[in-house]
Every structure is written in structure tokens, then in C-alpha cells.
């Protein structure tokens, strides 16, 4: 049976920000991209780097030499080791979208009042009825 983990209070992660949490022994990065939340395993599928400690950036695209554009600002994660870029929304690698992706977890925003009905696991903090929380099922 999947278990519900309360990973963070929604207000903890500002837009464009992220938080590294540990749930059931797994390190997971949670990202707030324009008000939507996404979660990725903190382990780069390339060679095990701490992916979620990388840079949150956009993606550089170009129509040809000397044309530089940064698009989708805040939607990509650049691994702190070899710099591979991953789409935070899907976990897909930009260079190898079909063969390389970071493990993704679904994040739900749930009201404290609903959570209170249980069951859930909140390892590091207290869930209050009036708050909103980020929930990951594992």
C-alpha cells in the first residue's frame, strides 16, 4: 500500500524555489515552478550526482550561431556535476529525452483539514488544520 507522506508546508517553497526533503530514506527535491509543485529524486540518472542541489535555470536555445535565447526560465535543473539539464516538470533530460530521465514523484497539495482525517506520515513537522501541505505518496 502506498503511504502518504507530508513532505513540506506549501508555503515553505516560494515560486522558483525548491526544498530538499528526506522521505522514507529517500532524498527528494520539491520544486515550485510558477505555482505548481514537482518532485524529483535527488539522484542524477546519469551518474548519481545530487541532482536537486544543481542550478534551477531555463534552457538555452538557438536558431543558429550567434543566436542565444533563454527560454522556460525556472523550469530546468542543471546537475551540479556534469551539467546535464533536466526538465523539472517531467524529469526528462534535454539531450536524451527518451532514454534518460530523473525519477519523478507526484506531489499533491492537500489542506491540513483533510489530512487530519489521516492516515499520513509527517516525519519532521506538525500538520496544522489551517495549513496547506505538499503530499507525496510512496
Amino acid at each position: 500500500m502506498a503511504k502518504k507522506y507530508v513532505a513540506a508546508a506549501a508555503g515553505d517553497i516560494a515560486e522558483g524555489g525548491s526544498k530538499l526533503v528526506s522521505i522514507a530514506g529517500r532524498d527528494i527535491g520539491i520544486f515550485n515552478v510558477s505555482g505548481s509543485f514537482f518532485a524529483l529524486a535527488n539522484r542524477c540518472p546519469h551518474a548519481g550526482g545530487s541532482l536537486c542541489e544543481g542550478f534551477i535555470t531555463g534552457i538555452a536555445v538557438s536558431g543558429g550561431p550567434n543566436d542565444y535565447r533563454l527560454e522556460r526560465t525556472g523550469e530546468f535543473l542543471r546537475c551540479p556535476w556534469h551539467g546535464w539539464e533536466f526538465d523539472i516538470r517531467t524529469g526528462q533530460s534535454w539531450c536524451d529525452p527518451n532514454s534518460m530521465r530523473a525519477r519523478q514523484f507526484a506531489v499533491k497539495v492537500e489542506a491540513g483539514a483533510d489530512l487530519a482525517k489521516g492516515p499520513y506520515i509527517a516525519e519532521t513537522f506538525e500538520v496544522k488544520v489551517e495549513g496547506e501541505y505538499l503530499v507525496i505518496e510512496l
Binding site: A60, D67, C95
Partner: peptide, 15 residues
């Protein structure tokens, strides 16, 4: 190298 440094030369749009 491309996978790590492509942002420097973003016109290289595939492997």
C-alpha cells in the same frame, strides 16, 4: 561533452 557544455553552443541541437 555536449551534454554538459551545450548551453555554450546552443545551436548544436542534437547529439
Amino acid at each position: 561533452a555536449w551534454r554538459g557544455v551545450r548551453a555554450e553552443v546552443p545551436w548544436i541541437d542534437r547529439n
